[in-house]
């Protein structure tokens, strides 16, 4: 089963839930935790483990050869993503718009657009007992989260094909990277805070998940911090509220020290169990 942990914005405790859920499940079965928040991966930090094995990841981008180009303009016509613009005396390529489809390269009558690998980031992994961990990090200045997320998911599918449970720590927000990260998920857990901002971002995330036709539920983190409008919203919309993690300074401190909070707080352990029960029921 593939479970994506997402949130409408950053800083809601998405990674806390992902790390703790993965570790908790790994007590009894093999689990792989995948950090897909490629712009700011930090699951590893809280897992208290550093992934040492890894490899660079690349994306294929056309490179323009000015000497052979006949300035016919066909490359611009064929690119569906407007990633290549043929100006009267030069061809400009926008790597962050390019989807590596090869169309321009194959169509160019003078073969002036050979595809070349461009490094976009690095993927690393480690395994400790039942728990395997994979993370990807975009290079600074690289904006293409989607292809890196795609490659990471393909890697996990291949390397951990036999692992029954996969937890995806998704990028925050509701744009293309989240859509890619949740694409294959059987269930999406939306983590939010019980505040007006939390509710606002939750609504956007819910819209996105409905649009994608995903099964999803909500976890309220720092329950008691704000008001009960998130709960009222979920009830009115018929969205399952999977769990509530209390707003407790000791929990926050424990987490900041890199501890797995469910090991110290039975209330959190019960909430994690509740999340899994709810997911199993919803996904079956």
């Amino acid at each position: 089963m593939k479970i994506a942990i997402a949130s409408g914005k950053g800083g809601t405790g998405k990674t806390t839930v992902a790390v703790n859920l993965a570790s908790y499940l790994a007590e009894t079965r093999p689990v792989v935790l995948v950090d897909l928040d490629v712009e700011e991966p930090n699951s590893g930090l809280f897992l208290g483990a550093e992934a040492t094995d890894g490899r660079d990841t690349f994306k294929m981008i056309p490179a323009w050869e000015s000497t052979t180009c006949s300035h016919c303009g066909q490359c611009q016509e064929v690119c569906n993503f407007h990633a290549i613009i043929a100006l009267p005396d030069q061809v400009m390529i926008f790597p962050e718009l390019c989807h590596s489809c090869y169309a321009c390269s194959e169509l160019c009558p003078t073969s002036s657009l050979p595809m070349q690998p461009v490094k976009m980031g690095r993927m690393s992994w480690l395994s400790a007992g039942n728990l395997s961990f994979v993370e990807s990090r975009l290079d600074i200045g690289q904006e293409q989260a989607v292809p890196l997320i795609k490659q990471t998911l393909a890697f996990v599918d291949e390397r951990h094909a036999a692992v029954p449970i996969r937890i995806y720590d998704c990028p925050p927000g509701t744009s293309c990277p989240v859509i890619e990260a949740t694409r294959e998920a059987d269930f999406v857990v939306l983590v939010t805070e019980p505040t007006p901002f939390g509710l606002n971002d939750l609504k956007l995330a819910v819209e996105t998940m409905r649009h994608l036709d995903k099964k999803f539920g909500v976890v309220v983190n720092r329950q008691g911090l704000g008001d009960d409008r998130v709960e009222a919203y979920c009830a009115a919309e018929g969205i399952p509220l999977l769990a509530r993690i209390p707003n407790d300074r000791r929990i926050a401190e424990s987490y900041a020290r890199g501890q797995r909070i469910y090991e110290h707080f039975p209330v959190v352990r019960r909430q994690l169990a509740a999340i899994m029960d709810a997911i199993k029921e919803a996904a079956s």
């Binding site: 993503f81 407007h82 613009i85 100006l87 926008f94 718009l97």
Partner: peptide, 12 residues
Amino acid sequence: NEAHGAGPLTAR
């Protein structure tokens, strides 16, 4: 209708 790439297109 273009999610991305509006800038270069308009510039063109």
